[in-house]
Nucleic acid binder design. Sequence first.
DNA 1: CACTTGACCTGTCCGC
DNA 2: TGCGGACAGGTCAAGT
Length: 294
Amino acid sequence: MPELPEVETVKLGLQKLLPGAQVVGVTFDIDKSFPNTLADVERFLVGATIVALKRRAKVLLIELSSKYSLLIHLKMTGQLVYIKSRGQRAEGKEKRFGAGHPNDSLIGRLPDKSTRVTLDLGDAKLYFNDQRKFGWIKLIPTAEVSSIDFMKKLGPEPLASDFSAEDFRARLLRRPNANIKATLLDQTVVAGIGNIYADEGLWAAKIHPSTLVKNVSKAKLDILFRELQAVLRLSIEKGGSSDRNYTGKGSYISFAKVFRKENTACPRCGTTIIKTRVAGRGTHICPYCQKAPK
DNA sequence: CACTTGACCTGTCCGC
DNA sequence: TGCGGACAGGTCAAGT
């Protein structure tokens, strides 16, 4: 899925389009993607006005005037597509957000078989598409959002102004015997880091992803903290990594140093980047800069 | 308990 | 062209 920078990009894009819009209708199937009851949806979603967009970790929050919020997790292939209704459509009004989608070329012919939920906003529609069906949308009272299981377990936001290198180190060290990549991917340790930014951060800090947390020096953990923040910030600035998330944006992936760069030269030392497997995930490293632990 | 691996789904790509 | 298997930016349950 979209990781923290991608979801932040979705939020920033939709923030310009959704607030003030009224939800006049909803089309969905009650399934794992959207577990709420029809009664709840009719009562707290239909008729409500969108008030604000927020993000926590990789979750997008759409706050409604009904005091409920839509929580959206895009997981691997989730995507939000905003399309002005026919007749009111102006050039460039189709905006797609989130992971790449095989039907991008069919934009304007939604819904399609990957569409799980359609919000009718009167003069526009917002589609939640998710090919692999891992993603979800939940309608939850805004006051209870932070106390649902998923949100409760999340670690701190890595870019929060009060999140320090000391906090970062202390939290990683709660899993001393796990490898550092798995620990970075653990959302209860730090929220929002996924496979791309774990690989990029570890490369920047010259740490092999298989290294046990307890074997990474304090100095290296401090460097990792700084580099991860830098990589997340740069990606947000570039509009995230999703190659097709919304037209003309999402250029971070072209700034990636190792992610999906196997068989190319390490920009630091020239050694060929390799792809391997760590923590059950495809993992990209420079075998010279990132020495494997003994 | 700490940590790792498989499953969840659908689609694509790659080798035979 | 067809088929099997591996893989995909995430998270949870089940396994060791």
